[in-house]
Amino acid sequence: MSSEAKTLLITGGASGIGAETARRAAAHGYKIAINYRSRDAQAKAVVADIATKGGQAIALPGDMANEADIVRLFEETERALGPVTHLVNSAGINGKRGRVDEYDAAILANLFAVNVVGLMLCCREAARRMSTQHGGKGGAIVNISSMAGTLGGRPGSSAYAASKGAVDAFTKGFAREVAAEGIRVNSLRPGMVLTEMTEGRLNDATFRASIEASIPMGRIGQSHEMADTILWLLSEQSSFITGAMLDASGGGYMI
């Protein structure tokens, strides 16, 4: 696609990898729409951060488990910033950790509603706007998956891992469908990264040491390392890459 105005919508952009991606993308000239569900103050702080550095950003509430919210999110972004040219699906939840024999149907349904169906509907809305078949100019999408999807997750995370496995399978299929219509779609699979979602558990020194011992590089990842990789996947530097799963995990797992 051309190097005209770039508008990036980030779901789950108020914290963690999404927030870091927003800040760095703004520095690269993207106009940013930060979606959030409950982190109102944090989302507005990221927007203010970007504004003080001369960038343009807005914060938009919306629940990824709600189709009407997703449609409205895209419409409001377009009204405020122009056509959505880039999308990062970063919103996600852990669900409830536990063994299969402890599953709760409602918790499972919500996990998949947010991590899978919500992400797919965001991709639907993006395709309707970006695809040359619909009069768009193309675009790039990055779906945030997880290394958990590659081997079923760490103990107690089988449901979360299954949701991320679905993201990867969908990414591959979707990428092929729209490859000739100017849209690239790739998946980033972070390993254990220090974010608001993980810091509670990583504050436990014993847990953190066991995690770091299982990573070939011997350390956990940082949000900025994920953000820089996402920006590369969004950029023309990765122009011949679509349908790829990129592992950003310090080498994966040593089992």
Rank of each mutant, 00 (worst) to 15 (best):
G13T: 04
R79W: 04
G92E: 01
T242F: 08
E199D: 13
L73K: 09
A57C: 07
I215D: 00
A248E: 01
S38F: 08
D69C: 08
G243F: 01
A126T: 11
T21N: 11
T85C: 02
A209M: 04
I58K: 00
M1R: 04
D168K: 03
S214N: 07
G138F: 08
A166S: 14
E225D: 14
Y30C: 05
H86G: 07
G149P: 03
K31R: 13
S131G: 12
K164P: 14
G135V: 10
A5Y: 02
T7C: 13
K96G: 03
I230R: 01
G98L: 08
I255C: 12
G18D: 13
A227R: 03
A68G: 11
S90D: 10
I215H: 01
R176F: 09
F74K: 04
M64P: 10
L194S: 08
I70D: 02
N35C: 09
G221Y: 03
G251L: 06
V100D: 00
G13Q: 02
S145V: 14
A162E: 12
G182N: 11
T242N: 11
R39I: 10
S249Y: 05
T77D: 12
H224D: 13
A19Q: 05
N66D: 15
V178G: 00
D69Q: 08
A140P: 00
A5L: 14
V88C: 05
G62Q: 14
K44T: 03
A25L: 08
S238T: 02
A209I: 01
R154C: 07
G13N: 03
D204K: 00
Y253T: 08
K31V: 07
G252D: 05
I230V: 15
I141Y: 09
F74S: 07
Y160W: 06
A244P: 02
E181R: 06
G82F: 11
N94Q: 01
P190Y: 05
V114M: 11
I10F: 10
R23K: 15
I50T: 01
R23N: 12
V116P: 03
C122R: 04
S223I: 08
G16T: 11
L121G: 02
A19L: 10
N203H: 09
A91R: 00
T198F: 12
A91K: 00
G82L: 09
S214P: 08
E236P: 09
G153L: 09
E212C: 12
F240T: 09
A68W: 02
M245A: 15
V47K: 06
G173F: 06
I241T: 15
K6D: 10
R24Y: 03
G153D: 08
S2A: 10
D49E: 15
V185K: 06
M226V: 14
G200E: 12
R208H: 05
L234I: 02
R208W: 03
R37H: 14
I141K: 05
N143I: 10
T150C: 09
V71E: 08
V100W: 01
I107F: 13
R72D: 09
S3G: 13
L81V: 07
M254F: 13
K31W: 05
R79I: 10
A26P: 04
T7K: 06
A140D: 04
N66F: 02
H224K: 13
F207I: 15
G191P: 08
G251E: 10
